[in-house]
């Protein structure tokens, strides 16, 4: 009987997809952090992820107690289809906010939740904000090759070069009703991201776009 089996280190124990003590399949695809060579990896930990029909799962590369990559049938790395350039120097990503759900059609009608996050905002690192002289609460425009939105700036700990915009804000509760209008500046984050999706799952890719950040004066025009 095994006296102590470290279930974190070896979650599968003696078992493999083919049975007890059968060899694991050979794994060839690996994705390691920059500068880490496969030989330098201290341990490959078999992960407890589900096996696919070909009977493989992923190994996690550990070096100095940190995860430095994976090995297995991880999908091949593909570079983003739009990278920052001179005109659009930031990498825009979109995401959630705690107080709202989907398009805010429920949470936006709950006064307390709506008051907690009533308007769209843009997060930027202090480093990127200070260079053009921008500060917390300044009105800005985020534009991409497809469209733009206007919002107040928040300085946060996003990494330099990145912009974050929550995608909850659409137009159902604005005077215009269905899109930007005279009193409704554009604010829908997902209309600025690239139209692209995963070919297998069809999951839309709302998470990366190249974007520019411009200061607005308080009347809404560019400064």
């Amino acid at each position: 009987m095994e006296l102590s089996l470290d279930r974190i280190d070896r979650p599968w124990g003696e078992r493999t997809p083919y049975g007890r003590a059968e060899p694991w399949p050979t794994r060839v695809d690996s994705c390691l952090a920059d500068g880490v060579e496969p030989e330098a990896v201290a341990r490959w930990v078999q992960s407890a992820s589900l096996l696919d029909s070909r009977g493989d799962a992923m190994d996690i590369a550990v070096l100095d107690g940190r995860i430095v990559g994976v090995r297995g049938r991880a999908a091949e790395y593909l570079a983003p289809h739009e990278e920052p350039d001179e005109e659009y120097p930031f990498q825009l990503t979109t995401g959630r906010t705690l107080y709202h759900f989907h398009t805010r059609t429920k949470t936006g009608r709950t006064p307390q939740l709506n008051a907690a996050a009533p308007e769209v905002w843009v997060e930027v690192s202090a480093e990127d904000a200070h260079r053009p002289g921008l500060g917390e609460g300044d009105p800005v425009e985020v534009s991409t090759p497809r469209g733009s939105l206007q919002a107040r700036l928040r300085l946060s700990d996003v990494r330099p070069g990145a912009l974050f915009v929550p995608f909850r804000y659409g137009y159902w509760d604005t005077p215009a009703g269905s899109g930007p209008g005279e009193k409704t500046p554009p604010r829908a984050a997902n209309e600025t991201t690239i139209t692209d999706w995963d070919p297998a799952s069809k999951q839309p890719l709302f998470k990366t776009a190249a974007a520019a950040l411009t200061a607005l004066d308080h009347g809404g025009g560019t400064r």
Partner: peptide, 10 residues
């Protein structure tokens, strides 16, 4: 055709 464009490029 967005999918054709992106996936064919990849």
């Amino acid at each position: 055709e967005h999918e054709i464009h992106h996936v064919a490029t990849d």
